[in-house]
Design a protein around this nucleic acid. Sequence first.
DNA 1: GTTCTTTCTTAACCTATGTGAACGAAAACC
DNA 2: GGTTTTCGTTCACATAGGTTAAGAAAGAAC
Lengths: 196, 196
Amino acid sequence: MPHHTLQTTIEKTLGESLPDTACRQFDAMAFEKSFDKKQLLVEPGRACNYQYFILEGACYSYYINEKGDKNAVQFAIENYWITDAASYFAGQPSVSTIETLEPTRLLVLSRQNFELLCKTHPLWDRYFRILLQTTLAHLHYRIVNTTSENAEHRYREFSRLYPHFIQRIPQYLIASYLGIKPQSLSRIRKEIAHKG
Amino acid sequence: MPHHTLQTTIEKTLGESLPDTACRQFDAMAFEKSFDKKQLLVEPGRACNYQYFILEGACYSYYINEKGDKNAVQFAIENYWITDAASYFAGQPSVSTIETLEPTRLLVLSRQNFELLCKTHPLWDRYFRILLQTTLAHLHYRIVNTTSENAEHRYREFSRLYPHFIQRIPQYLIASYLGIKPQSLSRIRKEIAHKG
DNA sequence: GTTCTTTCTTAACCTATGTGAACGAAAACC
DNA sequence: GGTTTTCGTTCACATAGGTTAAGAAAGAAC
């Protein structure tokens, strides 16, 4: 596997080392690609046929509702996977957009190759199962947080869990991720700065 | 497999039939259990060592925050799996409670047996991977909905997607699932009844 | 450097949802 | 069948967060 960073990530998730055969299979299935800042990886209405593993840079996925508000769904930096799950896993048209926040270098894995990969070596089924389990736990936590805590609490929690995101991601996107308007986040930050 | 309903569900998810060996493995790993109404399957603070597949009845998981509000996280009826994901998959103490809403008959799969099962036949890794993919797509949708739509929209959407839940689950729990108070749901329902 | 664009902040006012309390209707219990 | 909880509704009032608009600050483009 040419991408040492990915292999390390996978082995950490799996809790066991990845055999050479599996590595070579992955290499045959995925390819590397680079994007400038503000380029679209996925557009709503079209099928999202790829999942992306970020080697360098940052992306985010967002959804635009009927009112026209943009809502960040997920942020992804180095060592994160990102895709439109509903579209990629079920082959439906995507509802979200995925866009780079910075110049980004990433690995691209098509749905077809993903399925082939899982068929060629059972460790791939296992790796993605475990990856999804972890993601699921995070999403549950996020849902609880979103439905039961106020905006200030959510922002404090976000800053605590993802301090590196705070530095790299524009505030108005963080606001939309938290389910509030940029003006409200500005107000909340001011209050926090005062009372600590 | 003694539980035809589960086998059907699994094969539908997998898109292929489950070999006899895999069925027998599952039978050796899981056992059936029955609960009365309002019994606790999981308590916060303790490890949640099981995941549950509901054969008959209904359960829900909820989280109680510092203010003491109860917030429904997930509802589960026949053919749903339910667990505290963070606790079950990572072995941490549970943060949520899982409770029966009705007398319930379910299958119990311990974390140990789950892991054994996945090691004995690769189809189990695959089944749970695909199950998790679908769950993930739903949760993404729910997060988007919760952060970008108002309470009325969320209630309409919930009614549309889960009409069978509306009948079986108390309103104050649906309210907490939607992130609002029971009084607000009552008000919203009244408005909807008027304007349609 | 200067200009243009994007992002962040502030403030006044507005609205959806929360709060607390009271009441009636179911449902559970004996 | 009567009693006791639990659940749903309503209302008056409170508040977090949304809206609109304007300007300051920070980057990007030239």
